[in-house]
Amino acid sequence: MPDTVVSLQDTRLSLSGNAGMVDILKGIDLQVTRGETLGLVGPSGSGKSSLLMLVGGLDRATGGQVRVLGHDLTSMGEDALARLRRQHMGVVFQSFHLIPTMTALENVATPLELAGRRDAFDRAEAELEAIGLADRARHYPAQLSGGEQQRVALARAAAPRPDILLADEPTGNLDGDTGEAIMELLFGLRDRHGSTLILVTHAPDLAARCDRVVRLVDGRLSDAAVQDAAE
């Protein structure tokens, strides 16, 4: 029986904006099993990134339940969520989100340091070497190209060997060839560490590489579009 690592039940998210409350997610039910790769697709504004943020504990659901690795995220405090991410999750963003005041090496070492790993820098160096960026370790993000920044972000997410990798359109800001290389790296890392991968993407060919793809439309999972890539 497959081991469920992510479980959403009637999950809702509403945000207040200038025009009042806006319902972003309108009751999502979704299970993700250990080692699975799940593609989240859908038009812009459908709620894909928001859903990913809820799974990462980076935002709080306003209704329903979000369980990750057996933890109910809706009842956990900010710091407990941070500790959960530190131990079990890695997140990759479209805009890389490297800390501009840290070098590539320091960026990669930070989550390992936060997890209390004594060999944080050695491991960070090994990760950078693995993605071919050993010579850029002492460079600040502003001194790296977009592709290099995303590779550093990938190394940072993968360095703690997370159970779950969350990737939010990781190739959205990159050209085709660079994006292709990044995806190779992402799937390579996932294969190497056996992590569960949830990937938000607009690209059908990327989605096609996932074990399963779910489609979001207007804050709901679209039944018609839900497919199992394996079928």
């Binding site: 990462g56 980076l58 900010e78 710091d79 941070a82 500790r83 959960l84 991410r85 530190r86 131990q87 997140v91 989100h97 490297l98 800390i99 501009p100 005041t101 930070t110 989550p111 936060l114 997890a115 940072r156």
Partner: peptide, 19 residues
């Protein structure tokens, strides 16, 4: 603004508010 952003990234990487 810079610190808010930095704090958000650090939280994503697992930093507690105390840290």
């Amino acid at each position: 603004r810079a610190r808010t952003y930095e704090a958000a990234v650090l939280k994503t990487l697992g930093a507690t508010r105390r840290a």
